[in-house]
Design a protein around this nucleic acid. Structure first.
Lengths: 344, 344
DNA sequence: CGGAGAATTTAGATCGATCTAATAATTATG
DNA sequence: CATAATTATTAGATCGATCTAAATTCTCCG
């Protein structure tokens, strides 16, 4: 039971391989009548197009690869879905690989993708990714787009949200609600995104001329557990407790929310929480969670567009697309019960 | 800047293409000294192996595809990670595609995978998948493994947990804790998995000779929102409220937990909740969530093994691997505060 | 009816690797 | 030292498609 090829189709339809090939590519050159003959041969023999062979000849491929770190973070899966959607629309399939933030795996994975002939790579670089690595890909002529995280020292295509702005907006919102002890929870400072969001937080506080208490900035692993732990640290201890927190991302915020519940505190009433990313799940916590909307789906589409631009025109100069995030006010920041004036 | 091929390597190293090819495949036939010459040519020219071309000649591929429905359900992403791990160990890359439960997308996606030369398919079939569709793949000679969901009327390779058993164990646990009004929340009855889990629930209740109140079985979409809604329906209303619930899966359970918190009820103390799947997140809710452990990672490894078996021996008879789940007792079922005797 | 021009079709080379079967180089053996 | 046996290497065909450039068939018109 060997695979059906265009040779078989040619024999069945009584034409040459070249004609069959033209039909497969919907060429207008071929006469309607023979086109139908070939089409019916395809049906009869159960032919499956061998895109791999075609790509070999064309020295191109309809396959893109996406390399992310954490498939269990819903933000990244939403991003992945956005990328897949947009690529599929253009006739591409997308390989997804995850690296768990280890650069050696990232290397292995990108190598494998290249060997498999990926037309281009969309990468959310693992922490510790070196500029030289991207340089290497660039000189090898591999179209690359970075998402979410830039790599210092390398000027690549980048699609990312304005993390500084987003964190600033969220923090200012909490300040506007009258909070004076606002914490920044979660994330580790070895990630660019964390540094940017923390910077936005600091800027907001400084912008209002308020004192900044370093104790209120708690670094913790990205995850629910980290969020819960971090919250604990700004609620108890020698210092005056915080009354509100901006979280590094939604996952951390979910952890914080759970920890509040565990202490019998009600999010929004007893303590204000704002997340970051606005993943789908944020809308269905109870109460619904205020979050900085990054719109992963749109980001994904933009990344896909950027990659295709680079694929179709490899000499194009790198572009940075920075999306302005928007604060989505829901229940957990307590805006509904606020006494102070709210401006959103 | 054209791609470096074995021809270039051959020229650089002063040997033939065939020899280079042998070196690439680590053949012991080639003399150490020439091997080194070729290896250094590879380094010098920055050669990237073209696996696609190799696969064409070998009429095989080192690429598998995985088709799942919902990338936003952590259970499926954990499964995906397990599959990827196991496949990678065997030198395969894995394509991931999601279908959102629509069969037409499933068809498109599987077709695309076949065109791209996937060696085999691991499918969590979208609801409404017909036996004839799988039959079609089978006669086309495509190795297929189903995960999680069987398709009635088709005898394929299957890797799945024993959902009936899992639900029964969990329900019995709640009954053992003294609960008499135990609900089954979430899921829609057009999915095999839901029907199985519901069946396990019914069996447990019937097994104890207790009356079954159909009002306590609430169908709802799989998602946090669905879980929250479903919980509401067994707490209020004309009937006596439930005191415990087995949820269709963890995502539904998370929704239920949140809804409890929203009503000022404490999970485990005021109301017992058990989830299903035991995704990583279950351990870090507050309190940690009792759940039926399905071990998605192991399931993924098993599915990968099954696929490889089928790939290497296409005539092998289909096998069903059903994993016995285990109840992981944590805080949300209230076992810690139980007055009745607990047997776990 | 003959030939220009357009519309269709096709043979043969090609993409970058592997495979087969044969050859060349080296070592062992009588 | 000749020859057999081993060890290394290689030319040429091949995988299943596309591409180029040329050949064939069809129209149309003087």
């Amino acid at each position: 039971m060997t695979r059906v090829t265009i040779m078989d189709l040619a024999a069945e339809a009584g034409v040459s391989r070249a004609t069959v090939s033209l039909v497969l590519r919907e060429s207008p050159l071929v006469k309607e009548e023979t086109r139908l003959r070939v089409k019916s041969a395809i049906k009869n023999l159960g032919y499956v197009y061998n895109r791999v062979a075609a790509n070999l000849r064309q020295r191109s491929s309809q396959m893109a690869a996406m390399i992310i770190n954490d498939l269990t973070n819903p933000f990244y899966t939403e991003l992945a879905v956005g990328i897949q959607e947009a690529m599929e629309e253009q006739g591409y399939v997308t390989l997804v690989a995850s690296t768990n933030e280890v650069v050696s795996r990232q290397r292995k994975v990108t190598d494998a993708m290249r060997e498999h002939g990926a037309a281009g790579l969309i990468i959310a670089p693992a922490k510790g990714t070196e500029a030289s690595y991207l340089q290497e890909l660039e000189t090898a002529g591999v179209p690359v787009v970075l998402v979410m995280r830039r790599v210092p020292g390398h000027d690549a295509n980048l699609v990312a949200p304005d993390n500084v702005l987003g964190a600033r907006l969220a923090t200012e919102h909490l300040l506007d609600l009258g909070h004076r002890r606002v914490a920044f929870l979660g994330g580790l400072p070895d990630m660019v995104v964390q540094r940017d969001r923390e910077a936005g937080y600091r800027r907001a506080i400084a912008g209002r001329g308020l004192p900044l208490d370093e104790q209120l900035i708690v670094h913790a692993p990205v995850g629910r557990q980290g969020g819960a732990d971090a919250l604990g640290r700004v609620l108890v201890g020698p210092n005056e407790p915080a009354t509100a927190a901006l979280c590094f991302n939604d996952v951390v915020a979910f952890g914080a929310l759970a920890a509040l519940g565990g202490r019998g505190l009600s999010p929004g009433r007893d303590f204000a929480v704002i997340g970051f990313d606005d993943v789908a799940e944020a809308a269905s916590t109870i109460p619904p969670m205020t979050s900085v909307a990054v719109r992963p789906n749109e980001l994904g589409h933009a990344a896909a567009r950027a990659l295709l631009r680079q694929v179709r025109n490899p000499t194009a100069a790198p572009e940075q697309e920075i999306f302005a995030p928007r604060l989505i006010v829901r229940g957990t920041c307590g805006a509904a019960n606020a006494t102070a004036g709210v401006n959103v």
